[in-house]
Amino acid sequence: MTVLSENLSAGLEETGWTRVCAYADLMPERGACALVDGHQVALFRTFDGGLYAIGNRDPFSGAYVLSRGIVGTRGNEPTVASPMHKEVFSLVTGVCLDDPAVSVPTYRIRVAAGTVEVSLA
């Protein structure tokens, strides 16, 4: 889920958002992992600057590695391929495009004043 909102009003009271890193810390087309309330969240910055957050756990292998997969596209959908056995997941919906019965959770993500924030809510 993408919310690119540099202009978010700083005064707005919102709950549930956790600051994880500077936007500049994320390399284009490469993932990173954040630990948020004990949950491993895989963060991705795509080529066009979009941000996505999904669960870091690869449901096929059980290993927490999706943030280390290769980012790309299938059709117009931004994707990540599990580094374990290469199953491809949609960054938008978390659904495995090679096996739509399988999916990973997606999380809300945004940039506020140059800082990336994630919400588990």
Partner: peptide
């Protein structure tokens, strides 16, 4: 890669073409 895919390809690549 960016030059190659914009001039000779489509989309933004995947786990096959990128490596």
């Amino acid at each position: 890669f960016s030059q190659l895919i914009s001039e000779h390809g489509a989309g933004r690549g995947c786990d096959v073409c990128k490596p």
